[in-house]
């Protein structure tokens, strides 16, 4: 009995991404290493994402603080605001929101770029120019996004906390050292490490899914748009799935 089309599509896509991931690990550790292209991708993926990540991080910290404040006042625990915002940002909101923005900016960009290269035969041109396009285009981008996202998350967390400091001071006066002392006194190793580790997986998922969608793009220019779009959609869903798995693992390991 044939499976419904949507189910077979899902299984084909999952299988395709799994094989693609296997090929990534096979190719990534074999010479020739594309160091200069990897560094260029780190610059493009990491540095050029900073303004967007920084801005959204700042707004996220500011808004979260302003939204939480009335509830905490109601329960008489307003003084705990920096601690609560700090934990929320570092453990969950920072990594997930940053990863989602990263998927939107970098995922769509990789999907469209590789898709466009595919339909205009640029990938074939690389192949005949003595270059392994998988290594040059895929391995470098996946490695760069895996490495850059955790760094962006750390920067975003820092900017969010600054946004939160501004938010706290809109309706009151809290000194800079007091705010940060309250934040860091309530943050532990078990808050920072799982969030940091899972952001590597978020980065890897965005990189591999976007490269897969771009690398196997077809149907001409329409396919390029589809690649960009599905890169973002599938990456975003995968980020939530990884987050769900990560929280279960941290529970099992008593890191909560």
């Amino acid at each position: 009995m044939a499976l419904p089309v949507k189910t077979t599509d899902f299984l084909q896509e999952t299988g395709g991404i799994s094989v693609f991931t296997g090929r990534f690990f096979k190719e990534a550790f074999k010479p020739r290493y594309e160091i200069s292209e990897f560094l260029r991708q780190c610059f493009v993926i990491g540095y050029r994402s900073l303004p967007l990540i920084g801005l959204t991080g700042f707004i996220m910290g500011l808004v979260l603080t302003m939204q939480l404040r009335p509830s905490l006042i109601e329960y008489g625990v307003e003084s705990q605001l920096p601690a609560m915002v700090g934990i929320a940002i570092v453990r969950e909101i920072g990594p997930v929101i940053t990863a989602l923005i990263f998927a939107g900016k970098i995922g769509s960009s990789i999907g469209a770029e590789l898709g466009s290269m595919k339909v205009t035969e640029q990938i074939d041109a690389m192949e005949v120019s003595g270059t392994n396009p998988f290594k040059y285009l895929v391995v470098t981008r996946v490695a760069a996004s895996t490495l850059m996202l955790p760094i962006l998350v750390m920067i975003s967390d820092a900017i969010s906390l600054f946004g939160s400091y501004i938010g706290v001071n809109i309706n009151g006066i809290t000194s800079f050292p007091l705010f940060y002392t309250q934040v860091f006194n309530n943050l532990g190793f078990s808050d920072v490490l799982p969030a940091f580790v899972k952001s590597f997986f978020f980065g890897f998922a965005v990189g591999i899914i976007s490269c897969y969608k771009g690398f196997y793009s077809n149907k001409g220019t329409e396919g390029v748009g589809q690649s960009a779009n599905s890169s973002v959609v599938i990456s975003s869903i995968t980020i939530f799935v990884i987050d769900l798995i990560a929280v279960q693992i941290t529970n099992v390991l008593n890191l909560n």
Partner: peptide, 27 residues
């Protein structure tokens, strides 16, 4: 063996110089 593609297949993100240097540096 040189190959001239139907749609030219020039690398959009590279200048003319970089396009020409690419196969040289790879081969």
């Amino acid at each position: 063996v040189g190959f001239l593609f139907q749609g030219n297949a020039l690398y959009d993100s590279m200048t003319v110089r970089q396009n020409l240097e690419f196969p040289l540096r790879r081969h």
